[in-house]
Design a protein around this nucleic acid. Structure first.
Length: 847
RNA sequence: GCUCGGGUGGCGGAAUUGGUAGACGCGCCAGACUAAGGAUCUGGUGUCCAUUGCGGACGUGGGGGUUCGACUCCCCCCUCGAGCACCA
């Protein structure tokens, strides 16, 4: 098998340009105080989600977003911006460690190998990253600041009054005790049922459970003492401050949904001498409550259960405990048992029976509800099954008028809500309440390959305290065996040298989750080598925006409720504490769609439909891969791969190449001479000798407009179509003025930088295209003197007529009516009306 | 069930204040150059009818509506995908 001849020699010039860019640091971005920094230039910070460097190497999904941002970055640079476009590695985390355990290699080595491979792959795609700013979350110089930020969280609390985080030292000054302070820290120890994965030997955050289950890991509920972050305090702000961001509505919806805000009321019922608080979104139906339900885990269950019901209740509780949440959800039939106790409805003194049922969750609200079967589907199902009374309190006809409810009768639902809440407050039986679904963030992991917590425990008192900042970074000890042990304290517990800090103090053995490092990496890129600050104030002021630090962020929507929520939370804490000016991390965000396999299914090893970017680069070149991924369709849409499509854009690039070069008899590429240097004093319009060049100028400038409009709206597929049409026009011309062609190359350069630079050089130019300014659009070239008007009769296309662009309405109408085919269709009819849309069409209404 | 996003040729997709539906690419058909073409170039290509000539009918998931005019706006329905899911 002989090597197939390449349609153009990308295999020769692509590596050449990549080396050139790397050696000359062509894409270095100077920041404040650095050599070459120009404060007069506007800045633009465009960011990709940094990859987790897996052993499998780059996936074709990665270059989709990366190419999009690269195009915008290069475009902005050519428009005079100082563009920050960095790349780094999210190298901690469970996958790295699982892989290391499987292969027996230390995760540090695995990580090193993988990041080297990823870097090579990215460089072979010609992305304009400033590699001097590369960050790696596992680098001690980086994780030091991750631990520092954790200490900021540890050392602060959320002030409800001001709705912001403040240092706990303020509470100390007010005389709070250590225990009281520990209860309000943003990072706190909490014992509660958590998601424990026996197969991985660690706990997981709520947000992570589904992902790992899908990968075949087991997850169960288990009560454990864990470090939590008090993200729930930020629930309202996380919703409110999402609003002004330039994010896709669907992603905003996903976050809002996850945070899950509900407005309602808390109502206090009396239950055998205890006050039981329930949460309801329908306080207006309080008169319709016919029974109460407690979650099986509710603390009052055993106390209020009457003697005769005890056995049945215990049995039910045992049955519930053995069921996982998953199984509970799968139960189609409602189940439950009466406790024998009765609660008193505060509004009318009615005694209603108290039941226990697992359709009420301890984790939401107060774990107790008032059941209104007439107006709640679930309560209705339960009431019907157990034959409990159903009391209508909203009028059936209009679904909006309250009935059977004493002083609420006749009111609308909205009015009744207001009135009953007022009544509850006055009678001290409840209050308005806003409830969120969001839970606090379970932040500790029982793993080796993560940032250790910079915390110490007093062996005697059991108190925790922060490690002094001067002792950061705190690295994990070197260990041979770090397999999960099943011990919920994690593998570090086996390293006694490391644990014992002093006589009195020992280290926390948990590590942070992968999200820790990715929560703030976008800040570090701005000042990656600073040893004094996680980011200097100058760099922060220069690179960040107040209404959203990063100008434009692109990355997968699978992080909509994980990384994107966690980052926002940390950012707000750092903002509250005065470390950051901006309130939000990402001003504009965009999620590229999934690239599916050629068979239309999600790419996976087992289906054998995975496309390896290295193979595509080898066969068609980096420019072809870049261009194809942008040409596939709208960026935000899921779309299937088609190798034939790669060939299509590859042919297009070859066509551009052949405008400059032809192959001689020996099979060598030679300059074709089709590109003509501007002979007559650089004037591209030389009407006498070259009637076609005016047309080419027009096409070229139309292309400038179409390409830049498309880049602004991220419709890269249409930008490429425009360039293809332009190329087709060039192909059919006998000569192309060089100036025009160089303009075209500038348009092409953000998309296919290697080919564009190569041709620019072959044509004798010495300045890199990427260092030149984006071409200026000459609007005057777009003005048409003659236009085509569409002529419709009764809305149906009947003719197209060629007229002067400035034709008057009357003349246009006359010309249309005079058309042969129009007359054929209006014959025998009366023209009732003629609509003339100037420059577009004429519609004749006749019957 | 709730929330969000889709449905346009054989395929990926164009059509951004309602104004030529199908740009561009793939695939396919025909031709040119060739010893040869899986290279390249040229032409054609929504469906159906007519094709001796203009041309005509239908057509953007289905049904209805608004309008001189609807892929685009409104109502109802079908369908596919994603996220959440006994959240009171």
């Amino acid at each position: 098998m002989s090597e197939k001849r390449k349609p153009y020699p990308f295999d020769l010039f692509e590596p050449k340009w990549q080396s050139h860019w790397a050696e000359n640091k062509s894409y270095r971005t100077p920041g404040p105080g650095e050599e070459g920094f120009d404060p007069a230039k506007p800045k633009y910070y465009i960011l990709d989600m940094f990859p987790y460097p897996s052993g499998a190497g780059l996936h074709v999904g990665h270059p989709e977003g990366y190419t999009a941002t690269d195009i915008v970055a290069r475009y902005k640079r050519m428009n005079g911006f100082n563009v920050l476009h960095p790349m780094g590695w999210d190298a901690f985390g469970l996958p790295a460690e699982q892989y290391a355990i499987k292969t027996g290699t230390h995760p540090r080595l695995t990580t090193q190998t993988n990041t080297d491979n990823f870097r090579r792959q990215l460089q072979e795609l010609g992305f304009a990253y400033d590699w001097d700013r590369e960050v790696n979350t596992t680098d001690p110089k980086y994780l030091r600041w991750t631990q520092w930020i954790f200490l900021q969280l540890y050392n602060s609390y959320f002030c409800d009054e001001d709705q912001k985080a403040k240092p706990v030292s303020e509470l100390q000054a007010k005389g709070w005790t250590q225990d009281q302070i520990d209860d309000v820290r943003l990072a706190f120890i909490h014992e509660a049922p958590v998601n424990w994965s026996p197969s991985m030997g660690t706990v997981l955050a709520n947000e992570e459970v589904e992902e790992w289950k899908a990968k075949g890991e087991s997850v169960e509920r288990r009560p454990l003492r864990q470090w939590m972050l008090r993200i729930t305090k930020y629930a309202q702000r996380l919703i409110d401050e999402l609003e002004p961001l330039d994010w896709p509505e669907s992603i905003k919806a996903l976050q809002r949904n996850w945070i899950g805000r509900s407005e309602g009321a808390e109502v206090i019922f009396n239950l055998s001498g205890h006050e039981v608080t329930i949460f309801t979104t329908r306080p207006d139906t309080l008169f319709g409550a016919t029974y109460m339900v407690l979650a099986p885990e509710h603390p009052l269950v055993s106390e209020v259960t009457t003697q005769d019901r005890k056995e049945a209740v215990d049995q039910y509780l045992t049955a519930c405990a053995s069921k996982s949440d998953m199984e509970r959800g799968l139960d189609k039939e409602k189940s439950g048992v009466p406790t024998g106790a009765f609660a008193t409805n505060p509004v009318n003194g009615e005694k209603i029976p108290v039941w226990i049922a697992d359709y009420v969750m301890m984790g939401y609200g107060s774990g107790a509800i008032m059941a209104v079967p007439a107006h709640d589907e679930r309560d209705l199902e339960f009431a019907e099954k157990f034959d409990l009374p159903i009391k209508q309190v909203v009028c059936d006809q209009d679904q909006n008028t309250i009935i059977n409810s004493d002083f609420l009768n006749g009111l609308s639902i909205k009015e009744a809500k207001k009135k009953i809440i007022h009544w509850l407050v006055e009678n001290r039986k409840g209050r308005k309440k806003i409830q969120f679904k969001l839970r606090d963030w379970l932040f500790s992991r029982q793993r080796y390959w993560g940032e250790p917590f910079p915390l110490l425990w007093d062996k005697e008192s059991g108190q925790h305290s922060p490690l002094p900042e001067t002792e950061l970074p705190l690295l994990q000890p070197e260990m041979e065996d770090f397999k999960p042990t099943g011990d919920p304290r994690g593998p570090l517990i086996n390293c006694s040298d490391w644990i014992n800090y002093s006589e009195k103090l020992q280290r926390e053995t948990n590590t942070m989750p992968q999200w820790a490092g990715s929560c703030w990496y976008y800040l570090r890129y701005c000042d990656p080598h600073n040893e004094e600050h996680f980011i200097s104030p100058e760099n922060q002021n220069y690179w960040g925006n107040e209404d959203g630090f990063v100008d434009f962020y692109v990355g997968g929507k699978e992080h909509a409720v994980l990384h994107l929520l966690y980052s926002r939370f940390w950012h707000k804490v750092l903002h509250d504490l005065g470390h950051l000016k901006s309130k939000e991390p990402f001003k504009k965000y965009f999620a590229p769609g999934l690239i599916m396999g050629e068979d239309g299914q999600k790419m996976s090893k087992s289906l054998g439909n995975v496309v390896n970017p290295d193979d595509v680069v080898k066969n068609y070149g980096a420019d072809s891969l870049r261009l194809y991924e942008m040409f596939m369709g709208p960026l935000d849409q899921d779309k299937p791969w088609a190798m034939k499509g790669v060939e299509g854009v590859h042919r297009f690039l070859a066509k551009v190449w052949r405008l400059v070069c032809t192959e001689d008899e020996q099979g060598q590429w030679q300059l074709s001479g089709k590109i003509q240097p501007a002979s007559d004093s650089g004037d591209s319009q030389s009407p006498s000798s070259q009637p076609a060049s005016a047309d080419l100028a027009k096409v070229t400038h139309q292309t400038i407009k179409r390409v830049q409009d498309a880049i602004h709206s991220l419709r890269f597929n249409t930008a490429i179509s425009a360039m293809m049409e332009c190329t087709n026009a060039y192909t059919s011309a006998t000569e192309i003025p060089k100036g025009l062609f160089l303009t075209f190359l500038k348009l092409l350069s953000p998309f296919a930088p290697h080919l564009a630079e190569e041709l620019n050089q072959l044509l004798g130019e010495t300045e890199l295209l990427s260092e030149q300014l984006w071409p200026q659009l000459d609007e005057s070239l777009l003005v048409e003197t003659e236009i085509q008007l569409i002529v419709q009769v009764n809305g149906k296309l009947r003719s197209r007529i060629q007229v002067a662009a400035d034709i008057s309405k009357d003349d246009a109408e006359k010309a249309a009516l005079a058309d042969e085919n129009v007359q054929a269709h209006t014959e025998g009819k009366t023209v009732r009306k003629v609509i003339v849309v100037p420059g577009k069409l004429i519609n004749i209404v006749a019957n």
